[in-house]
Simulated assay, not measured.
Amino acid sequence: MTRLGYQVPNFTYPGVGSDGLFEAVAAQAVEAEESGFDTVLVMDHFYQLPMLGAPDNAMIECYTLLAALSQRTSRVRLSALVTGNTYRHPSLLAKTVTALDVVSGGRAQLGIGAGWFELEHDSLGFEFGTFTERFEKLEEALRIVIPMLRGERPSLEGTWYSVHEAINSPAPVGRIPVMIGGGGEKKTLRMVAQYADESNIICAPDEIPRKLAALDEHCERLGRDRSEITVTYQTSAVIAPTKEQAQAELDAAVAAIPELAARAGGVILGSPDEVRPIYERILASGVDGVTVNLPANGHVPGRVALLGETLAPVVNRS
């Protein structure tokens, strides 16, 4: 399960074209593994998100990238943060995640959510639907994907999906953990309690206790052992040897990708000694771990390693 995850949030780097892009991403994954991260995660999108760049900024298909990264790493788990359920039929998703597990030697993790980026759906022809419909689809998908990952042959005649004795062979190498992303207290956290091994939440830090209390309540009502579920908290950071360097790298990134300005106020920025206590406070709020991205300077050699070396001791003693 994830306790310290490194997420790659963008693929637009100064002076890097398509021919060098994979190597720039792989270098981050290797630094993450060597510096103490236990999971490497990438976004499952086809257009860049509004707060990270323009729609036509580079975005590599998630599962192809994860499979390639599995060949450059040996220990870290590999996951989407998170798979958009609306992009694939659940039986195809089960086969895809299982293939990742096989080629990685048992390191796949399924991160999944209901989907939310309407522009991407409309432009590329994926049905978006209503908020309620997307969550109905997600729950039906979980009733197909999870049994397929566990060696069962599910059948379902649902409102949105149908399968009949769905076979998943070869089987995963090991047990593939399931993470559900999102902090919705009524729908999302209920599904976490019912189906998942892990929850990844995005919210203001002072909202974390309320999210955890909602998850506790769902677990109690459903008869789920709350201790079976790991909760991670999603964050963005800009770290460098000094705060001045970190600020300069953020400023340079915003100059190159103006959309990042909207995200700048929410990043955890500074030197290791300034970043570390902020994460200590986050972990003290009750979460089991954190996922972190470096939207401004993850591509700078050594920055992912600096982040891992700073946070791994904090997470491991929490």
Score class of each variant (00 low, 15 high):
48 Q>A: 09
49 L>D: 09
50 P>Y: 11
51 M>H: 10
51 M>I: 11
52 L>H: 05
52 L>F: 04
52 L>W: 03
53 G>V: 03
53 G>N: 14
53 G>D: 14
53 G>H: 13
53 G>M: 09
54 A>E: 15
54 A>V: 09
55 P>T: 10
56 D>P: 06
56 D>K: 13
58 A>P: 11
58 A>Y: 10
59 M>C: 11
60 I>D: 15
60 I>A: 12
60 I>V: 08
61 E>L: 14
61 E>F: 14
61 E>W: 14
61 E>R: 13
62 C>L: 12
62 C>G: 15
62 C>H: 10
63 Y>H: 12
63 Y>F: 10
63 Y>G: 02
65 L>T: 05
65 L>A: 07
66 L>S: 04
67 A>G: 05
67 A>D: 02
67 A>L: 00
68 A>V: 06
68 A>E: 05
69 L>K: 07
69 L>E: 04
70 S>D: 07
70 S>E: 03
70 S>V: 00
71 Q>M: 07
71 Q>A: 07
71 Q>W: 06
72 R>Q: 07
72 R>F: 01
75 R>H: 15
75 R>V: 04
75 R>T: 07
75 R>I: 03
76 V>T: 06
78 L>E: 01
78 L>H: 00
81 L>I: 14
81 L>D: 11
82 V>P: 07
82 V>I: 11
82 V>G: 06
83 T>Y: 15
83 T>F: 10
83 T>C: 11
83 T>V: 14
83 T>H: 15
84 G>I: 10
84 G>M: 10
84 G>A: 15
86 T>E: 11
86 T>S: 12
87 Y>H: 15
88 R>Y: 07
91 S>Y: 02
91 S>K: 07
91 S>Q: 15
91 S>P: 00
91 S>T: 12
92 L>I: 08
92 L>S: 12
92 L>G: 13
93 L>I: 02
93 L>F: 02
93 L>Y: 00
94 A>I: 10
95 K>E: 06
95 K>Q: 10
96 T>I: 04
96 T>P: 03
96 T>Q: 11
97 V>H: 05
97 V>E: 01
98 T>S: 13
98 T>P: 11
100 L>M: 03
100 L>K: 05
100 L>S: 02
100 L>T: 01
101 D>T: 05
102 V>S: 03
102 V>T: 06
103 V>T: 05
104 S>D: 01
104 S>T: 01
105 G>S: 09
106 G>F: 00
106 G>M: 00
107 R>T: 02
107 R>S: 12
107 R>H: 01
